[in-house]
Design a binder for these strands. Sequence first.
DNA 1: ATCCTATCCTGTAGGC
DNA 2: TGCCTACAGGATAGGA
Length: 305
Amino acid sequence: MPELPEVETVRRMLERHVTGRRIAAVEVSGAALRGVVPRRVHECAAGRVIQGVGRHGKFLFIGLEGGWTLLSHLGMSGRWLFHARPPADPPPHVHVRMRFEDGCELWYEDPRRFGALRAVETSRLAADPSVAALGPDPVHDPPTGARLAAAARGLRVAVKNFLLDQRRLAGVGNIYASEALHRAGVDPRRRAGALTAREWDAVAREVVAVLRAAIERMGTTFSMYRTLWGEPGGYGNHLRVYDREGAPCRRCRTPIRRIVQGQRSTYFCPSCQSAGRSRSRTPRKDRKLKSRRRTAGQGKPRTGA
DNA sequence: ATCCTATCCTGTAGGC
DNA sequence: TGCCTACAGGATAGGA
């Protein structure tokens, strides 16, 4: 759901619209978020100016003056929403309301409460256990095939699950793991330790490519993710395999398959992602039928309208 | 150490 | 129409 491109989209919007604002008051609901310490968030944020917003993987860092940082993870259903003119009655599941001096408000909404929010001292941010465990961010520090191959050496876990492991690479989630492997032409069931150098090169390249392409379109709204303004992301129409079970592969028209790996859905093309060899990057010759896509199972990016 | 499973949680979709 | 159940998956704890 919110993966790196969605979190980056929110980061950019926060950076632009809340940096420099002073938090006049913070209202925190009692609801338990994962690892949240509401009172501490309240005490650390109230009265301080937001100095900038950073990100590593799926974590957001909202930097405050005075040496404090709000560490935010959106989990499955978390959203930061900015209101220039806050509605009178907020929807349910708004757990944090920050009011700025000029009356604007920033809300944290999270129906499933898988998200996390806590205040940490900025000097100790890198040492925070959940941050310290993260691998490199693929957008800040693009991986090479050689590096991924070295990290995967000897591992028997499926390459799909390897990509989901935040200790190896921080920010790839279920949607983009499937997408990157399809783009790279690698079967998601292959053991990570068994990929060739050439395959790792393709995976490294396509992970970065799909994340960047999704960032450009403000992420993928599969169900709940929204931007700071409550808008859905625009990358859903560009997904090649995710949530397209039975629909024709956009490259070869073979029906997309869905399997379950580690209790999560994986989508792939059994033809393009054949076990054993990575496909060439030769452009398609037959581009005859391409306007009759728009298949069933194309997610439900309810625009809310 | 690696790998796998269950757990948290609620909105939504599908079946009857 | 409405109730009921299954399903979706981020991180993490705990077991093998």
